[in-house]
Simulated assay, not measured.
Amino acid sequence: MNGVYFKASRVLAGVLVCLALVACDKAQSPPAAEAALAFHPADECHVCGMVITDFPGPKGAAVGASGTKKFCSPAEMLGWWLQPENHRDDVELYVHDMGRSHWNTPDDAHLIDARTAYFVIGSGLEGAMGVVLASFSDPKAAQKLASETGGKVLRLDDIDQKLLGQATAMSPMSH
Rank of each mutant, 00 (worst) to 15 (best):
V153S: 10
G165K: 14
A33K: 10
G79P: 01
H96L: 09
Q166M: 06
Y5T: 08
L154G: 14
G14S: 10
T116A: 14
Q166P: 00
L21M: 13
S66Q: 14
P139V: 14
E92R: 13
A20N: 05
S137T: 03
A65Q: 12
A128V: 04
D107M: 11
D43I: 10
R155K: 09
S101P: 03
H40Y: 09
V15I: 15
A8R: 08
K140F: 08
P41W: 01
M129E: 06
S101Y: 04
A65H: 04
G99A: 06
S101I: 09
L82K: 11
G79I: 11
A65M: 02
W80N: 00
D158N: 14
R10M: 10
A109R: 15
A61Q: 14
G127W: 01
W103D: 11
V132K: 05
N2V: 04
S66M: 03
H40L: 13
H96N: 15
G151Y: 00
K69M: 08
R115I: 04
Q166G: 02
L19N: 01
P56Q: 00
A142C: 07
V132H: 03
C24Q: 02
A33M: 03
V153A: 09
Q143V: 04
G49Q: 11
F136I: 11
L93V: 09
V11P: 00
H40Q: 09
L164R: 11
K152S: 12
N86L: 06
G130L: 08
S135H: 00
D43H: 13
K162E: 13
R115C: 07
G122P: 05
L21W: 04
A33S: 13
A134C: 06
V4A: 10
D108I: 10
H87S: 09
A33H: 06
H102M: 14
G124S: 07
C72G: 12
F55I: 10
K152H: 09
L154C: 13
A8V: 05
A142T: 04
F39P: 04
